[in-house]
């Protein structure tokens, strides 16, 4: 019971902190002091109090977009184990529900963007649709590999199973998987080198341009939803890359928080040292990620 409570509290309150850590890391690389760690929280609270401008072109779909995408991410957060602690709900085949919940959120985000009738947002959602379609098989290859390694069909069991001993046993497969999933993590959360969360208006944008017309509380929900998505997908990733576990519940929670913060620093570092890719390169890299994950699958089922 306590563990479920901690799970929920972490899922609700911690996500924006990751954005703060990423921002601080980038500032450190640039030689600046940077905004405080809690800046994303301030931003979201301010947005929730602001007024809203609705485009006259839009219908209720535009308002449903942020709601559905946050709701799906929040429900998906119940399926992911945090650190060594299993998720509040897990059942056979929950990994498929996990993958498809994000699809629902994406459908409504894209529809909301297209509801504005702006060609920028049309471009953004066309890219989102294509790239997420290319990223989808990677996630499934990862799930296959993990399911085969752990011998189970639920996210909690298959992710918690990854440990240093599994790394020794199937290190090659896991390295390939970490490579592929890191690319997916960056694409899905619109980070550099695929997308830049700090600019809105350039023609190369994907996710950020889709939410161009949102403002006020709805935009606050979007910002919070984006940080929650980073948190949920990040929690998946740290299981693969940083599988710390001790067996003591309190220490394990601490280790989970530390590994999430480490992940934020890594993302911040990548964003500081890399330039954004040209748009035509993105599909190539996504296919490469799929092939990496497919290799790892072949290594474990051969």
């Amino acid at each position: 019971m306590t563990n479920i409570l901690i799970h929920l509290l972490l899922a609700i309150f911690m996500p924006p902190l990751l954005l703060g850590v990423i921002g601080k890391t980038k500032a450190a690389f640039a030689g600046r002091i940077g905004a405080p760690f809690l800046q994303p929280y301030y931003d979201i609270f301010r947005l929730l109090r602001k007024g809203t401008v609705f485009s006259t072109t839009t219908t209720w779909i535009f308002r449903a977009g942020p709601i559905v995408s946050l709701a799906t991410t929040a429900v998906a957060a119940l399926l992911i184990p945090f650190g060594a602690h299993p998720a509040p709900i897990s059942f056979q085949g929950d990994m498929i529900l996990y993958a498809y919940l994000f699809a629902l959120g994406r459908f409504f985000t894209m529809a909301a963007a297209l509801d504005t009738g702006s060609s920028f947002e049309g471009m953004g959602s066309a890219r989102e649709a294509t790239y997420s379609c290319l990223a989808e098989p990677t996630l499934f290859f990862a799930l296959i590999t993990l399911s085969r390694l752990s011998g189970s069909y639920s996210l909690s069991a298959m992710l918690i199973k990854v440990s240093s001993s599994i790394w020794l046993e199937a290190g090659a497969a896991l390295i390939l998987l970490v490579g592929g999933m890191f690319i997916v993590l960056l694409v899905e959360n619109c980070r550099i080198p695929f997308d830049d969360p700090n600019t809105h208006l350039e023609l190369t944008m994907i996710h950020e341009v889709m939410v161009l017309d949102h403002s006020g509380p709805a935009f606050g929900l979007i910002q919070y939803g984006a940080s929650l998505k980073l948190f949920v997908l990040g929690a998946f990733f740290v299981h693969l890359a940083l599988p710390y576990a001790t067996g003591t519940p309190s220490v394990d929670w601490l280790l989970f928080i530390i590994s999430m913060l480490e992940l934020a620093v890594i993302i911040g570092t990548v964003e500081s040292v890399m330039a954004r890719l040209r748009l035509v390169r993105i599909p190539q890299l996504l296919v490469a990620a799929t092939i990496l994950a497919a290799f790892s699958t072949l290594l474990v089922i051969r």
Binding site: R49, G51, T56
Partner: peptide, 11 residues
């Protein structure tokens, strides 16, 4: 909060 209607932002 205040809700206003305006055309879609055309940059």
């Amino acid at each position: 909060s205040e809700v206003t209607a305006a055309p879609t932002w055309g940059c």
